[in-house]
Amino acid sequence: MTKIKSLADLRKMKEEVQSKIKLRENSDNSGQLVQIKVGMATCGIASGAKDTMKFFIEELEQEAIDAVVTQTGCMGFCYAEPTVEVILPNKEPVIFGHVGKEKVHEIVDAYIKRGELVDGIIPVNFKTIDD
């Protein structure tokens, strides 16, 4: 592949691969997609949230899972950074703490693909049977 050095090169590359790739997910159908929000405030960045976000993008791509990966602010669990909020379609959001490379793999493999809960969940939005 030729080197991309200008916006024109980028456009050319896009036209070559356009038929193979997806369009931008618009917000109308985002409820039907897996959503990943990586906590990216000072505390998150200092603990490596940037790499965590990259790992998620790569891992989801490898597993061919349709998902939107984005950033969010501090969720208040600075002791457990990097923290990640995962929203599966029609499910309650779940927040995971201490998400490094290994954990990313575990979350994608067990929680997102098979719906099994994995260790490291921060219980914030749980409901008791009395609710």
Binding site: K3, S6, L7, A8, L10, V17, Q18, I21, R24
Partner: peptide, 21 residues
């Protein structure tokens, strides 16, 4: 936005393209 239009920037080719640029 102008160069890439409506494609998802999360796609591998697009991602690598932006980073390489």
């Amino acid at each position: 936005n102008e160069a890439l239009g409506d494609v998802s920037w999360q796609e591998k080719e697009i991602r690598n393209g932006i980073i390489e640029l």
